[in-house]
Design a protein around this nucleic acid. Structure first.
Length: 883
DNA sequence: CGATTCACG
DNA sequence: ACGTACGTGAATCGA
């Protein structure tokens, strides 16, 4: 016999949300309510083995109930965004489960269920209704049983008419009268004030219905009588509101609810996507996305090559397009090679580093170096550098799984191969740590284990690729990936291998200068504070300044007194020592990070520093630089700027040439906001801060003084960062109110910018992500957070990311085009560094004139915007001179 | 290993 | 009322 289960979706997900502790997936999406719902659902399916299941949802904001009573559900708190974002997740999961979902514009879930149960009564079908709402009891009959959640969601109490009688002494229909008298605060149904469940039950036992109670008030006396007579109309209306509508125009039929049991192929991926690992296990589902495409780990064929077998093995592989090179060590220029696996789909061979270096593997090395042999793998940029460091050339990177993962979600922190197999529901991979250990315990296992492990990694990469290709296609990032990031990855590797020459002797000399000054400052500070202590310890410094010297506390940190530069500036007038501490801090930073730090990074082999650009870190699409960081070499302060003198050309007679974009972020903003005033400023190549000041303060450009320009500059920065009055007030040291006025005036003038800021936040709320001009995306799961701070942060990010990210897109384009231009013209000049809006080259004397024109020209036409891009070029004997 | 500070765009 | 400007990496201290 058929068994039907009808679930009140809204009611249950609400219950689940408040019953479950907070739970978020790796993307930051809340999943606790869906989780609670799912556990309840699975239990129902197991216990009742239904043949038909349906989940009903409310649809539309205004229901017919509002027509008679505007305040219906009025007092109710707005659905928390942490819950709202779970509705789409639940609906997708139900699709994966093959469970019908009904909704009807203008009606609530209980009306749909009311209608279906009436039909069930008429047709004699056995139905179970599941809800968290007691109102549902009014639907009970011999055919219709009601399951109400009890504490939490998985515990369900079943009611038939007999049990309702036992519990309340009422018939199912009298449940409506009960609510008519009591009301319901959660739905803003008034009822009769002062009448709770006890009184209402007594009245109903005595009279029967609301109408009978109202007609029979003569039999009552005292306060009770007065209250009921005064609120008779409320009671009638409340009863009406509590009555479930049982005749809605529902087109779906019983057939539409058929449930054939959970299918692993669809339910598994749905659960995997939500990261409900415990439920996958409970159901014994692997959670793989597609049984056909997935490579069962057990089927990977791995062969360990030896000097004797490598030639034959290599030749016997039909196609080789996947490689996995395992390296060890953070700095790819110094990384050890652990092993290499190559092959395709399910068949791989493994080579030890020794074998790869040996004469026997020369054809493998030739294949690696051949750019016409496309290679797909994980973090090929690192592979390229690590192999290069061991004298093995690498070319032909065609698909980098890490880079694709970064584009698909640049904030994903676990972009490892095993993280990706989990994300895509592929057969799981043993963690690196498990096989090799980590930190001091790191140990390469014996070759059989290692070879098998690396071949499995390669097979996992092969399985991930088609899924990423699909995702890149649907997110419209094919061109960004294949035409920008992949080519750039090779260019970065070239720049890093090339390196930039650093003059060790000059750097050491500078270090001696700093050393001397630091020594003087230290003794002076100790003398003035009357004691010796560890100046590098903010904790000890705080004790000296605030406890011993009694200076006023300006700001505190989580752990104690704050002693940062901003605080010290404010303390300077109180005590002579503070100025010295500021100077000490500055020099100590230069000494430890830029002199000592840089000296450690100069390669003894070629006297150069080889940084490593990370292409998959910054959430906005920027690069970052490590070992050493060459994107934060001092420039703002003269003492620090001297560090730049040690960066020199690597060939005698050559020149360092640098070109930087002028105001690229504000130009990007002018383009994407389409603000007429801002565009006009750039079309006419005006000084943007002066222009902003003159517009905002309403004075002529000539009348803008340095203070006004400074304020305007701060506002422009604020705009790019996603402005807030608080941030601006901090920066300009003015009150929040004044800052707010500034911002208002700015938006009054630059109305297109205001519109952009409003639109982009709205877009982020709607889509859950923002995009750059080249379709790079960044998800902002916190854009709907209820916490003000968290939400505000996401809103500023929504405003800033398209600007910073598009600027990053543009300079990356310029780098790819610059690389082509150098090749086309057979130039020997080399691109060495990128510093977000600046490119640094070394240029032979006979190419200087060409490069002075070429570099800015390429940068300026990298991407056409509605305003011109401007690049300014300079050159000299070292990086300091190229200013 | 987290917190603090500070260098850059 | 809420209390942060956006994006990074490196050095140092101290639990």
């Amino acid at each position: 016999m058929d068994k039907f289960i009808l679930i009140d979706g809204n009611s249950i997900i609400y219950r689940a949300f408040f019953a479950m502790p907070p739970l978020t997936n790796s993307k930051g999406l809340h999943t606790n309510a869906v989780y609670g719902f799912t556990t309840m659902l699975l239990r129902l399916l197991e216990e009742h083995k239904p043949t038909h299941v349906m989940v009903a949802f409310d649809a539309g904001k205004v229901t017919f109930r509002h027509e008679g009573y505007q305040e219906y559900k009025g007092g109710r708190e707005k659905t928390p965004p942490e819950l709202s974002e779970q509705f789409p997740l639940l609906k997708e999961l139900l699709r994966g489960f093959g469970i019908a979902q009904f909704e009807l514009e203008g009606f609530e879930a209980d009306d749909i269920i009311g209608t279906l149960t009436k039909r069930a009564d008429e047709a004699g079908r056995q139905v179970l209704v599941v809800s968290g709402d007691k109102d549902m009891l009014q639907l009970a009959s011999d055919h219709v049983h009601i399951g109400l959640t009890r504490k939490g969601v998985t515990d369900i109490e079943l009611y038939d008419p007999a049990q309702i009688k036992e519990r309340y002494g009422l018939t199912p229909l009298q449940i409506i009268d009960l609510k008519g008298l009591m009301g319901d605060t959660s739905d803003n149904i008034p009822g009769i004030p002062g009448v709770g469940e006890k009184t209402a039950l007594k009245l109903l036992h005595q009279f029967g219905t609301v109408e009978d109670v109202l007609n029979g008030t003569a039999e009552l006396k005292g306060k009770m009588k007065e209250k009921i007579e005064a609120h008779a109309e409320d009671a009638r209306m409340s009863k009406q509101l509590a009555t479930i509508h049982r005749e809605v125009p529902l087109e779906q039929t019983w057939e539409d609810m058929q449930f054939a049991g959970l299918q692993e192929e669809t339910a598994g991926p749905a659960l995997a996507k939500l990261e409900f690992k415990s439920l996958l296990e409970r159901l014994n589902f692997s959670g793989k996305v597609d049984a056909v495409e997935a490579v069962p780990a057990a089927e990977v064929k791995s062969t360990i090559a030896t000097e004797e077998t490598i030639e034959d093995l290599f030749a016997s592989l039909e196609t080789i397009d996947v490689i996995h090179v395992e390296t060890h060590g953070d700095n790819p220029h110094q990384a050890e090679l652990v092993g290499i696996a190559l092959g395709s789909s399910e068949e791989y061979i493994f080579l030890s580093p020794e074998l790869l270096q040996s004469k026997a593997a020369s054809s493998v090395r030739a294949w690696l170096a051949n750019s016409d042999e496309p290679k797909r793998g994980y973090d090929l940029h690192r592979v390229d550098l690590a192999l290069h460091a061991h004298g093995i050339e690498f070319a032909g990177a065609a698909f980098d799984v890490q880079l694709a993962a970064y584009l698909l979600d640049p904030t994903e922190s676990n972009q490892t191969i095993s993280g990706l197999t989990a994300k895509y529901g592929l057969p799981s991979l043993v963690e690196d740590d498990t096989v090799m250990g980590k930190g001091a315990k790191y140990k390469v296992p014996e070759v059989e284990v290692l070879g098998d492990f690396l071949c499995r990694k390669a097979a996992a990469v092969a399985a991930i690729i088609p899924l990423q290709e699909k995702a890149l296609e649907s997110d419209e990032m094919n061109s960004l990936f294949h035409e920008l990031e992949m080519p750039l990855s090779r260019i970065l590797a070239d720049m890093e291998k090339q390196g930039i020459k650093a003059n060790t002797a000059d750097l050491q000399a500078l270090g001696h200068e700093f050393e001397e000054q630091i020594g003087r400052l230290m003794s002076e500070i100790y003398r003035l504070s009357g004691t010796e202590f560890n100046l590098n310890s903010p904790k000890q410094l705080g004790e000296i300044l605030f406890d011993r010297l009694g200076l006023p506390v300006v700001k505190k940190t989580k752990t104690g007194y704050s002693t940062d530069a901003e605080v010290l500036e404010k303390l300077a007038p109180y005590h002579e020592v503070v100025q010295h501490i500021l100077q000490y801090r500055q020099l100590a930073k230069l000494q430890s990070t830029y002199v000592e730090g840089l000296l450690k990074e100069i390669s003894p082999r070629d006297g150069k520093v080889h940084t490593y650009y990370r292409q998959t870190i910054a959430a906005t699409g920027r690069l970052s630089s490590q070992f050493p960081n060459l994107q934060n070499i001092p420039i703002r302060m003269e003492e620090g700027r001297k560090i730049r003198k040690v960066f020199v050309p690597s060939e005698p007679g050559w020149t360092i040439l640098a070109a930087d974009y002028s105001q690229i972020e504000l130009r990007v903003l002018a383009h994407i906001s389409d603000d007429e005033r801002l565009k006009e400023a750039f079309v006419n190549d005006m000084d943007i801060h002066t222009k902003t000041a003159s517009d905002v303060f309403g004075v002529k450009a000539e009348e803008v003084d340095s203070d006004m320009r400074r304020s305007a500059k701060a506002v422009n920065f604020g705009i790019v960062y996603g402005i807030s009055d608080y941030g601006l007030s901090q920066n300009l040291n003015i009150t929040r109110k004044e800052a707010a006025q500034f911002i208002d005036q700015y938006f009054e003038v630059f109305q297109g910018v205001r519109r952009y800021m409003d639109d982009i936040v709205r877009e982020a709320r709607k889509d859950g992500y923002v995009k750059t001009l080249l379709e790079r995306r960044r998800y902002l799961p916190e854009i709907n957070a209820s916490n003000f701070n968290i939400r505000s942060f996401a809103e500023r990010t929504a405003m800033n990311t398209p600007i910073q990210g598009t600027a990053a897109d543009i300079i990356k384009l310029a780098m790819v085009q610059m690389d082509e231009a150098l090749r086309e013209r057979n130039l020997n000049s080399r691109m060495l560094l990128q510093v977000h809006d600046e490119l640094v080259f070394e240029v032979p004397a006979d190419e200087l004139e060409t490069m002075k024109e070429l570099v800015p020209a390429v940068m300026e036409k990298a991407l056409e915007l509605s305003v011109p891009l401007k690049a300014e070029v300079s050159y000299g004997e070292n990086w300091y001179e190229a200013k």
